[in-house]
Design a binder for these strands. Structure first.
Length: 167
DNA sequence: CCCTGATTCGC
DNA sequence: GCGAATCAGG
């Protein structure tokens, strides 16, 4: 079995509906749970629209599959320097809903996750491994007149609900 | 033991 | 890009 466009779409749909990896695998047929998880990661859709009632894990890194220790890659980690506030409102306009996100989309969350306006920046990511576009990565964000320097989405109270590097 | 997702890396 | 193997957990 290969990941045809159709099967990929089905996977994406079921996963975002909140089915577990094994459930998705059973429904698709011909693929293992691992295959589904691998594909989900490559698609960059780690966070689901409807979280499973029991999220089994809390994002722990697994050691190397072999004994071999290699230098830790900095792949899924958020940028070391947290992006700052947007300088203008235009910078905050989302271009993507969660269904539009792909591997190359900036995952900066915008709006209220429980509201209709919620979306993601969606502009091209600066690097393949990173999470954000150039603006959201590079410190193009400035503090507002208040003087505070924190992520815009954190200011809106989203921080407790959204883990940007896993979206 | 059943299950969950996360991660690595040979292929 | 793919996914088995292996990890940390519920």
């Amino acid at each position: 079995m290969d990941w045809s466009e159709e099967r990929t779409a089905t996977l994406k749909k079921l996963w975002l509906e909140g089915l577990s990896a094994s459930q998705v695998a059973r429904q698709l047929g011909g693929v293992s749970r691992s295959a589904v998880i691998g594909k989900v990661h490559r698609l960059g859709i780690t966070v689901r629209e409807v979280p499973a009632r029991q999220r089994a894990t809390t994002a722990v890194r697994a050691p190397s599959r072999l004994q071999m220790r290699r230098p830790a890659r900095e792949t899924t980690a958020a940028p070391r320097v947290a992006p700052r506030l947007a300088r203008t409102e235009e910078d905050l306009l989302p271009t993507s809903g969660i269904l539009d996100l792909d591997v190359h989309s900036c995952r900066w969350p915008i709006g209220n996750p429980e509201g209709d306006d919620f979306g993601f920046c969606g502009r091209p990511k600066l690097t393949a491994r990173g999470s954000y576009c150039e603006q959201h990565t590079a410190g193009a964000f400035r503090r507002l007149s208040g003087g505070q320097a924190v992520e815009a989405w954190a200011l809106k109270g989203l921080k407790e609900r959204v883990r940007p590097n896993q979206i």
